[in-house]
Write a protein that binds this DNA or RNA. Sequence first.
RNA 1: GCGCUCGUAGCUCAGCUGGAUAGAGCAACGGAUUUCUAAUCCGUUGGUCGGGGGUUCGAAUCCCUCCGGGCGCGCCA
Length: 552
Amino acid sequence: MAKEKIVEIIERAVMKAKAYSDLKIETVPEITLERPREKAHGDWASNIALVLAGQAKLPPKQVADIIIKYLDDKQHFLEKVEVPPAGFINFYLSKDWLYSGLKEIEQKGTKFGHSSAIKENVLIEFVSANPVGPMHIGHGRWAVVGDVLARVMEAAGYLVTREFYINDFGLQMQIFGKSVAARYSQLLGKDVSFPEDGYQGEYVKDIAREIIKDESDKYLSMSSSERADIFRETAYVEVLDYIKEILSKIEVFFDSWFSESVLHKNGDIEETINFLSEKGYVYHKEGAVWLKTSDFGDDKDRVLVRGNGELTYFAADIAYHRNKLERGFRKLINIWGADHHGYVKRVKAAIKLLGYDKGSLEIIIGQLVNLLRSGEPVRMSKRTGEMVTLDELVDEVGKDAVRFLFLMRNTDSSLDFDIELAKTRTNENPVYYVKYAHARICSIINFAKGQGVPLLTTDRVKLDLLADESELDLIRKMLELEEVVERAASERTPHILTKYALDLATAFHSFYTRCRVVGEDKDLSLSRMVLVNSARVVLANTLSLLGVEAPF
RNA sequence: GCGCUCGUAGCUCAGCUGGAUAGAGCAACGGAUUUCUAAUCCGUUGGUCGGGGGUUCGAAUCCCUCCGGGCGCGCCA
């Protein structure tokens, strides 16, 4: 990438200036380059002169002027270098450098934008919806965020495992089993009461109907608790299958499904408690067993074993995280709904009590989605069961719109999702704006081929004919992909990819209105074919990372 | 009450771990296009970055405080 090369050039220049005592400085700080906000400030800018001004006892502008005297651009990356009064050093990439980018795109193809660097192995745990009912829209957002984060991190060189933690143990499951059992009896004409805190949704009846269809009334003779136990298992498998089905509809797949009840069966939780106990972090109080999480940043200590002898969810969660770390993952990333953010401190404290580094667990808090229809809020009530499920949303607006629009905002801020907007096929809808750019490129390439303008390799066309500002801007934008992927991965911000896709589409559309691919000048047409095809490749790669189809 | 989080243009939001005159999109207004898909492009208007204080060469960004919104504060999961 151009960035590293420029950093190198600056570094050498500063060292030389120091060696020749032109700059009287002690140490050479790390050189950082940034993308100037203003296009007029070049492709890259360095604030090194501002940083060194204090040390050198000279105004920034003078320091910058000294440094650029020593810049040695042997390979001709740079068109020019400028120092504005503020003392920044602005670098303008040469056209040749941009053209060589087109060659790189040709060579790397679908791998352009990906990095070959090998980084640490990470486990991303996300969605982890309780298997007791349909997924809501928020689950969908967190699913997409986790999935694209995984894709982007893979592209950036991380070894990623995607895991779904199944909360198939505990009170919620019991209630769920009872709810199904009650509906089962009711549907068979028995006058039984429905559990007070039971699951109201229509889907519970559906599951009961399913059981009746398959096995009729054979469970009626059992005691109600026996029946609830059996139905808990049947129903849970059914709901889990349903969850998997919806996830596959939005193309979110997991490498691993981890069951909470397995931790209970294996005795992993007791073992973890013993482990913590031996380290002296566990104590008894008021009939319960407590963990000293407050020693490591939690607001208060937490219960591991309740007075009635039952393990808490927290105890299981510690064992789960220990298990993850023992599987050899150096970095754990959890994506949790906003309603769990009060839980963050205690889990992080537990990680430290287990003896692992604080940084080994990162928790991304996902905010909710506000559903709108033509600007009006869609009213939802959990109590009455009146809500739009993820399933229904995907059926109405389609996978691509759901995925793209869920990634339009930072994960930790809430997001407005307008159902009608998501369905429109105009430029107001960002998804179609981007997809259209791809379709238009494909159409141009087909048209051109029909007019006798073939797509040749870069070494057979005159790239230096690509000189219009819109053409160079388009190339510049294409060459940003790797940097965007890198940043999205390292900062865990997959949503910046949608912004990039929009910018790239805009750069292409600008080019389109200014320049014709098929024209009088045959050489120029051939060069532009290479250009638009490169744009197609980069746009397709971007959409692929987002999990959105690139139409022809 | 305590904790987390957010507050940037009329609306929806970026702002890359402190840099240049705070940027997009939508809306409003004004233009372009003899076209390879009008699902397009270009321009203009619009800001006390919630208020106040501090840190320094330099703050939307870091710290403190106040105001306002969201969420969380169980021997629930």
